[in-house]
Design a protein around this nucleic acid. Structure first.
Lengths: 141, 141
DNA sequence: GCGAAAGACTTGACTGATTCAAGAAAGCCC
DNA sequence: GGGCTTTCTTGAATCAGTCAAGTCTTTCGC
């Protein structure tokens, strides 16, 4: 409900402050790992006239500027979360697709030094853990 | 061209040996990291009458049985490679989407022990490196 | 080898996330 | 407040992937 932090955030990356953008940021903060559809629904709860295209545009702009982080586990649509400074990773449930945050076991950037990078200039190492969430583990028993 | 190895492979996982399946396996071996469309094209080069649905079905079956591995970096369609025993990872070019193999820096399963797994039962840790491939690095200069 | 049962393939339609394009509206600097 | 630029709305299109129904193959017992 407190947008005071989002406004300067947007300005800091040279993005104009608009109602749709603030609404998207709020939605992403309240629903971590939400997909575009969920963000759209959350945004419309407070700003009914926002178009789905606007949400795509905004999420794209925020991702490009680094304010939000886009993740897309195999078999899933794109999901978004507020970019926080830490380099955390994600666990994805193979059964229901739920995503949860996981701090990296290694204190610092994990495995960032590939032994043989094939000449690629690597700038990020993304780790995705796959498994079964508590709910699905129980259900399967 | 030597299918002698694929036939027992299919039987070992209780899959019937069919022309489409052998063709898909050959295609995946010859084109590592190929997407479904490329696999379809390669398959049709030798088996013109194979339907696109068959390729989806076959890739699904092979993935499920563990003979091939499906990877899907964010923003990319699904890509496939022959499952080899090693636990290698991938570098993806942010610019052109090219995928290359990378041996893991850590000798064994990297980061598989998440510090806090949120109650998830984790069975795999997937690492994706993001960066710029040699060709795109050069082009951008 | 032969025939039945199960599994796999073909055909054709459909879904749903994401993107493209053109014009209207709003934010920002002076 | 005026005007330029960016952003948003509207509406259509694309494209990977999926669904469904019916036909053909592979397998396996005899």
């Amino acid at each position: 409900m407190d947008d005071s932090e989002f406004e300067p955030l947007l300005r800091s990356v040279d993005l104009r402050v608009t109602r749709p953008r603030l609404a998207v940021l709020r939605a992403v903060r309240r629903h971590p790992h939400a997909d575009t559809g969920s963000v759209l629904a959350a945004v419309r709860a407070e700003e009914p006239s926002v178009s789905h295209q606007a949400v795509y545009d905004v999420l794209g702009a925020l991702t490009e500027s680094g304010l939000v982080r886009r993740i897309q586990p195999a078999g899933s649509v794109a999901r978004y979360e507020l970019r926080v400074g830490d380099n955390h990773h994600h666990v994805v449930c193979r059964s229901c697709g739920t995503v949860a945050d996981v701090d990296c076991a290694v204190g610092h950037r994990p495995c960032l030094d590939a032994s043989d990078s094939q000449g690629f200039v690597i700038d990020e190492a993304e780790v995705t853990y796959w498994g079964t969430c508590p709910a699905c583990s129980t259900a399967r028993t």
